[in-house]
Design a protein around this nucleic acid. Sequence first.
DNA 1: TTAAATGCAAACTATTTGCACGTAA
DNA 2: TTACGTGCAAATAGTTTGCATTTAA
Lengths: 140, 140
Amino acid sequence: MEVNLNTIIAKQRMKEKKLRITPQRHAVYANLLSRQDHPTVDSILADINSDLPIASKASVYSALAVLREVGLVREVLLEEGVTRYDAKIEPHHHFVCHQCGSIDDLEWGVFSNLTMDNLPEGLHGNSYEIIVKGICSCCS
Amino acid sequence: MEVNLNTIIAKQRMKEKKLRITPQRHAVYANLLSRQDHPTVDSILADINSDLPIASKASVYSALAVLREVGLVREVLLEEGVTRYDAKIEPHHHFVCHQCGSIDDLEWGVFSNLTMDNLPEGLHGNSYEIIVKGICSCCS
DNA sequence: TTAAATGCAAACTATTTGCACGTAA
DNA sequence: TTACGTGCAAATAGTTTGCATTTAA
């Protein structure tokens, strides 16, 4: 269900910009949709090629670049030198466990009391993300 | 004044862990203290060597690692593949202009109305950072 | 004096690029 | 058929590492 709705949106956005939905791009996107762990390029690559080789590393990079361009995927920067990817487009925040390193999504509503009203003169915010660090349920 | 207070703290913390304050480490730390632009390694390197060569790139990396260990410096991750550094230890947030890329510090109090009370069951937050993206005063 | 730090160069890792080949509209 | 995408390998960029030399305490 969820996946189907997402793939419909994906088709629309790709068509709008005249980009092809190739097997490699589909595999990368489907893999991201199926996972909650904000994987790295290598992890995506290993996962989509695990049963039968379908994409090279260059194609995964390329697919991710395209998917980001059309707004279907965003990158998540939480650790130095590690770029992770996320197919969840709804605005949300992240929780990082500094014991085990796991990453959880935090729904937007969790911080609904936040306001941008007090920004210094001259700065106009139009999006924000909160990164919370702490201990997850597995580690506590 | 500010710099002197910081260097006193620095001496204390380094002494505690029996780490030496070498000219290179001092130069890197002083450079970070003097700058508000969250520089990269290359930028720090160029700046401290601009008048007379004092440190190699490896030493800058090493100095930053040590300064981070003792909590005098933190890294700032805002763009893919770019690691920036910050000698401001007080907790604070960041504003990124998506026109010119400039980075401004946001004082903690700007978001004082934020609470961690609604985190999902099992997650225990103990620190957080907010990254706001928008347009800075120069660009608007 | 001497353990710790530097500097250089080589090694590594992540990502990008150029180009010949393949493929979908 | 033709522009677009893939895969490979080489190039690039950022960072780490090993080791001989130097140096701060």
